[in-house]
């Protein structure tokens, strides 16, 4: 099993990930990170860890890890 990790402090709120997510699993709810950007969050129920968000992100926000059992 894999899990999507979000490094929210790196997010600059460009929304490329949201635009490209095939499952509509990513969203910005309005909380602001230390850089001052509303950062992205994930709905793990919808996420299939396909990795597209990682590919389109300019800011190294996403990581897909092995989920701890």
């Amino acid at each position: 099993m894999e899990k999507l990790i979000i490094h929210k402090e790196s997010c600059k709120s460009c929304r490329y990930c949201i635009e490209n997510c095939p499952k509509g699993a990513l969203y910005i709810k309005g909380d602001i990170n230390e850089k001052g950007y509303p950062y992205v969050s994930v709905d793990h129920e919808k996420c299939t860890t396909c990795g597209i968000c990682y590919n389109v992100c300019p800011d190294y926000v996403f990581e897909i890890q092995e989920r701890e059992v």
């Binding site: 894999e2 396909c50 990795g51 300019p58």
Partner: peptide, 14 residues
Amino acid sequence: MLKKKPAACFVDNK
């Protein structure tokens, strides 16, 4: 598919 930023991108870009 596991994904992790490459080691060369060691800090946030500007």
